[in-house]
Write a protein that binds this DNA or RNA. Structure first.
Length: 297
DNA sequence: AAGTCTTGCAACCGCGCTCAA
DNA sequence: CTTGAGCGCGGTTGCAAGACT
C-alpha cells in the first residue's frame, strides 16, 4: 500500500544531518525511546520526517554501532553469508553485531563485488563466471585466481581456491575441445578471419599456434590435468564424464563420435548437460553453503 | 595549480509487508 | 474483507574527498 507524503512533509528538511539535529535526536531517544517514528520528529522538535530520523538513528547514531574499517574476517563472513542469503542486507547485518545493513550493502557494492569479479567469480551466484563471449577471457582470470591457492592459509580461501582450480581445468578442457572438434561452430570456420581466438578477442600468438596445431600435438599439454576418478563422483556425474571429459583423454585416436559437451550457457542457469555436471561436481566436497545455512539457522 | 575522473558513503526513494480499525 | 498508517528493506542518488592527468 503506497503512502503519499503528507503536505507538511514536503517542506521538511532533507540532506545531511547537522550536529545539532543529531544531538536533539539522540537525547530524545535516550529519554523517550522511539515507539512511533512518525510522531517522533514533532515531539522532539525536529524539522525532519520520521523516516529520516529512523534512518539516521539506525545507520549512524545508535550507540552500539561499530565504526571503522571492516576486518578481513568480517569481509569473509559477508561473502559467505551473501552466498547463502543473497542481497538480504538486513539478514546479513543481523549476524554481524555493530554493523548496519546500509554499511554492509555499501561495502559489497564498492569492494566485495569487485573483489569477486577480479577473481573471476560471479558476485550473484558466487560461481565462476560463464558468460558466452567472455568465457575464455574469464578462464584466464579463473586460472590466475586459482594460482593464488598455493599461497593461501585460511581454510575457507583454500576451499574456494581448490574449487577454482578444478573449475578452470574443466572449463578449459570443455572449450578447447569444443573449438577443435565442431566444424559447424562459427569460431572454427576455415575462414582465417573467423578464427575463434580472433572472434573471442584473443590475439596471443601462442594461443593461435595452440589452436592451429593438430590434436596429437596438444595432448602432452594436458598431462597435468587431473580428471577425478569416477569412484569419487556421483553416478550422474560419472556418466557425463564418461561421455565428455573422459572422451577427451583419447587423444591421438580418431574420435568419430565427437561426443563433446556443449559450450557453457551464457546465462547463469544451468541449461546444458555439462553445466549440470559441472555444478554437481562443484558441490562435491563443498560444505560451505551447508555450513553457512546451518550457521544461520 | 587546475580541471576531470573515480570512489566511498550517507541519505533518500519507492515498494511491499504487517496490522489495526 | 477492505483500507490506510507505519515501518523496514533494497536499490539508487548525490556529494565530498581523493586520485589522476
Amino acid at each position: 500500500m503506497m503512502r503519499t507524503p503528507s503536505s507538511d512533509e514536503s517542506c521538511l528538511k532533507k540532506g545531511p544531518w547537522s550536529p545539532e539535529e543529531d544531538k536533539i535526536l539522540v537525547e530524545y531517544i535516550q529519554k523517550h525511546g522511539h515507539r512511533s517514528w512518525r510522531a517522533l520528529p514533532k515531539l522532539a522538535g525536529l524539522n525532519r520526517c520520521g523516516k529520516s530520523c529512523r534512518l539516521r538513528w539506525t545507520n549512524y547514531l545508535r550507540p552500539d554501532i561499530k565504526r571503522g574499517k571492516f576486518s578481513h574476517e568480517e569481509e569473509q563472513l559477508i561473502i559467505n553469508l551473501h552466498a547463502v542469503l543473497g542481497n538480504k542486507w538486513a539478514a546479513i547485518a543481523s549476524h554481524m553485531p555493530g554493523r548496519t545493513d546500509n554499511e554492509i550493502k555499501n561495502l559489497w557494492n564498492t569492494h566485495l563485488k569487485k573483489k569477486l569479479l577480479q577473481m573471476g567469480l560471479d558476485p550473484v551466484t558466487h560461481r565462476p563466471r560463464t558468460d558466452h563471449l567472455n568465457l575464455l577471457n574469464n578462464l584466464q582470470q579463473i586460472l590466475a585466481a586459482a594460482k593464488i591457492v598455493s599461497s593461501l592459509t585460511n581454510p575457507c580461501e583454500i576451499n574456494n581456491g581448490l574449487r577454482l582450480q578444478s573449475d578452470a581445468k574443466l572449463l578449459l578442457l570443455q572449450n578447447i575441445f569444443q573449438l577443435k572438434s565442431t566444424p559447424s561452430h562459427p569460431a572454427s570456420n576455415s575462414d582465417p578471419l573467423l578464427n575463434p581466438f580472433d572472434v573471442l578477442g584473443f590475439n596471443n600468438p601462442n594461443l593461435q599456434n595452440f589452436y592451429e596445431s593438430p590434436l596429437s600435438q596438444i595432448q602432452p599439454h594436458f598431462q597435468n590435468f587431473e580428471v577425478p576418478h569416477h569412484d569419487q563422483l556421483p553416478t550422474q556425474v560419472c556418466g557425463n564424464l564418461n561421455s565428455s571429459i573422459r572422451e577427451s583423454h583419447k587423444f591421438g585416436s580418431p574420435s568419430p563420435s565427437n561426443s563433446l559437451p556443449n559450450l557453457v550457457s551464457a546465462s547463469p542457469e544451468r541449461s546444458t548437460t555439462f553445466e549440470l555436471t559441472l555444478g554437481d561436481f562443484m558441490d562435491i566436497e563443498e560444505p560451505t553453503d551447508t555450513y553457512w545455512k546451518s550457521f544461520i539457522e
